[in-house]
Computed example of a mutant assay.
Amino acid sequence: MLEGTIIKGIGGFYYVKVDDTVYECRARGLFRKSKITPLIGDRVLIKINKEDNTGYVEQILDRITELKRPPVSNVNQAVIVFAVQKPDPNLWLLDRFLLLASYQKLDVIICINKSDLDLDGKADEIYDVYNKAGYRIIKTSCKTKEGIEEIRNLLKKKITVFAGPSGVGKSTLLNNIQANLKLQTGDISQKTSRGKHTTRHVELIELDLGGWVLDTPGFSTLDIDFLEEEELENFFIEISEKSTLCRFSGCCHNKELGCAVKEAVDNGEISKSRYDNYLSMLQEIKEIRRY
């Protein structure tokens, strides 16, 4: 059997790259019986049919990481892309992306794209909030080329997922990072002011500089039903750090007295938008657990 990587999956077919050759494969029925679905990024063993050079996925090797949405495996880095405008940044959604990436123990880079459209300093405001929270942020523009080389250097020898809402410029960024990718790009819908979906499937793309990237379809929600209330603060870096100073152990930083987190919000040490998003997610988890 040959060992390779699933780089694309469409309509029940999996495209497995082995060295410089890509084989079209089906998955064995045993995966369906075991309710296991091969994922993009999986390292697999395949058996080749010499008559037509197609194959079957016989075994999925152990996964290092696994994301549910987008459904990919073995990623070790996430570039979360949001635009300064067109569409306007949704920080509530950004915080959910950050939570999921942290839960999967991925290295995270926040990319504030379309910086050439920033006429009112919005990019700097977002930068300050998330830099203070402990994240790495890069401002990029495909028109001025700001930040492109910095992003490119961070992709070397990594498997990186590019995630974010539709229309923020993920595919355009990747086309600027490597010109021969020629990924389909789209404009913003004039009717909804939202991005039009241009990426139709998840695909692992090999880079000339060494490394792989995943350009994923845009999406607008991330479930957090896997979390317990007391776990949530662990995925808000600045809240977790301040929580050690709370008067009572088990403080949820909501209505408790002597809460160091609420005090930090009041004096500007913690962003109110981040805190509000934390409270929103906390309430969501409580509602989930209630039922």
Rank of each mutant, 00 (worst) to 15 (best):
K182I: 03
K182V: 06
L183R: 05
L183A: 03
Q184N: 12
T185A: 05
G186T: 06
G186Y: 01
G186K: 00
I188K: 05
I188P: 07
S189I: 01
S189E: 05
Q190I: 04
K191S: 10
K191F: 07
T192W: 04
T192A: 11
S193R: 08
R194H: 05
R194F: 01
R194V: 05
G195I: 03
G195H: 00
K196H: 04
K196I: 13
K196A: 05
H197K: 08
T199A: 09
H201K: 08
H201W: 10
H201I: 08
H201T: 13
V202D: 00
V202Y: 00
V202R: 00
L204H: 01
L204I: 04
L204A: 14
I205N: 02
I205L: 12
E206D: 07
E206T: 12
L207A: 08
L207V: 08
D208W: 03
L209N: 14
G210V: 05
G210E: 12
V213G: 10
V213T: 14
L214G: 07
L214Y: 10
P217E: 14
P217G: 14
P217K: 06
P217S: 14
G218Q: 01
G218M: 01
F219Q: 05
L222N: 07
D223W: 08
D223P: 13
I224C: 12
I224K: 12
D225M: 08
F226H: 14
F226M: 15
F226E: 15
L227S: 13
L227Q: 12
E230A: 15
E230S: 13
E233L: 11
N234L: 12
N234M: 11
F235Q: 02
F236I: 08
I237K: 05
E238Y: 02
E238Q: 09
I239M: 00
I239L: 08
S240W: 00
S240M: 04
S240F: 01
S240A: 10
E241G: 05
K242H: 11
K242A: 10
S243E: 09
S243G: 08
S243Q: 11
S243Y: 00
S243A: 15
T244Q: 04
L245S: 09
L245N: 15
L245I: 03
L245R: 11
C246W: 01
R247H: 11
R247C: 09
F248T: 14
S249E: 11
S249Q: 14
G250H: 12
